[in-house]
Design a protein around this nucleic acid. Structure first.
Lengths: 222, 222
DNA sequence: CTGGGTGTTTTTGTATCCAATAATGGCCGC
DNA sequence: GCGGCCATTATTGGATACAAAAACACCCAG
């Protein structure tokens, strides 16, 4: 299947299309850590030359999504227990700090907005629309992190890390208990923000993400 | 000057040589945030083709050292007050967490080693050998972080961030007061490790790096 | 004098080609 | 039959060629 077969992506730089294509394949788990990623092979499959493929691969490597394999070429970075834990822990630390920063600059109008998102997610959970729960949870974090988008590096790190674990979240949020725990966590976060207690904010967010980590580890290997 | 003019680097992949060359130029401040980095231009200067130059540039971009400029090409990422603060704050958070992790796994033999490094740095400070102070301080942190090198992503993030602010540290450690403050910070870190108090460890490291941030900001704009 | 538009020039993006290098498989000696 | 060595081949790294796009400058109209 050529990349260009997806028409909505047409017109933009090939290298970006290849990059996004591969990234999606990796993050959704369609590309497993066993497969060898050869430049020529990928180029052929995607119907482009090796040049943009190489650049995409290098970028993915820099992001830590793929690694040089034992033979030649790259392989998808593992989702071993350690890898997953590491990523969630980093998220916990960075986003915990971010919430501390946010607590100092947030206003009532934001808080109302967050509560609304949680309410809607809870309604969706009652109605068993789990996909909607997932979306609303994602939006909760996205909206939150928008508030530190001026801290460019911090923001980029957080967004990157979140993408890298998104697929585990999806699994967790399929289960009612997982979704329940997540929503409770979000409630606590909003509460901590209400209280404007920076330490509490940081701790709460860390706990929330650690919980997500536990859920993810459950899903991976039970 | 061709890259290959430096013979010790000969034999290794061109792209890496270019990458390291540019990185050094940036981190030491020889390449200022005003200059436009054109592929062709760089390729000519370095005596290589555009291909490895591009790959190096992309990698540097992924690391956040350069950014797409307003016109075409890349520019060195700014060292505005905000940028510098952001980097130091991220360091504070990540390394604070790292010290927490380390406190749970460290043994007496390590602690002795750290104290030795500080002692030697203090001696160097007395003797006014500031370059040696700088080296020993660097080794202090390096040795420390080795202890979390199994947490691959965390480790990479920390190492990257440290490199990005290294040049400001160099300035700080030229002054006796800056060096003094730094060594005191290190003493406190070792003390916290001795006490095996995770919370204290994290707090202490954060404070230490925040102090470094203040020193750096002083140096930048007084 | 100013703004818009067009032609020119630079610079970047992609493809292809050649060289270097690592993996592979077979062959020979032991 | 096993292990090491060389030839073969697959695959990546680098250079070059060509296409597309963006910046630039110039000219003309208002």
């Amino acid at each position: 299947m050529k990349v260009t077969d997806t028409p909505k992506q047409a017109g933009k730089p090939v290298r970006r299309r290849v990059y996004e294509h591969l990234k999606t394949e990796i993050l959704t788990g369609r590309l497993s850590p066993e497969e060898r990623l050869g430049e020529e092979h990928l180029a052929e499959i995607l119907g482009v030359s090796r040049t943009p493929v190489r650049e995409a691969l290098h970028k993915l490597e820099a992001e830590g999504l793929i690694q040089p394999g034992a033979k030649r070429g790259f392989i998808v970075s593992g989702d071993s227990r350690e890898e997953v834990e590491d990523r969630f822990e980093i998220r916990a630390v960075l986003e915990g700090y971010a919430l501390r920063v946010i607590s100092a600059r947030i206003g009532e109008e934001h808080l109302a907005r967050f509560e609304e998102l949680i309410d809607r997610a809870e309604a969706a959970l009652e109605a068993n629309r789990m996909d909607e729960v997932f979306d609303l949870n994602t939006r909760f974090h996205d909206t939150l992190h928008e508030l530190v988008s001026d801290r460019e590096r911090l923001y980029r790190l957080i967004v990157d890390m979140r993408k890298q674990v998104l697929r585990y979240r999806r699994e967790t949020l399929q289960s009612r208990e997982g979704a329940r725990r997540t929503l409770n966590g979000h409630r606590k976060i909003v509460l901590a923000l209400h209280l404007k207690d920076p330490d509490l904010c940081e701790r709460t967010m860390r706990e929330h993400i650690r919980q997500a980590k536990e859920d993810a580890l459950q899903a991976i290997m039970g």
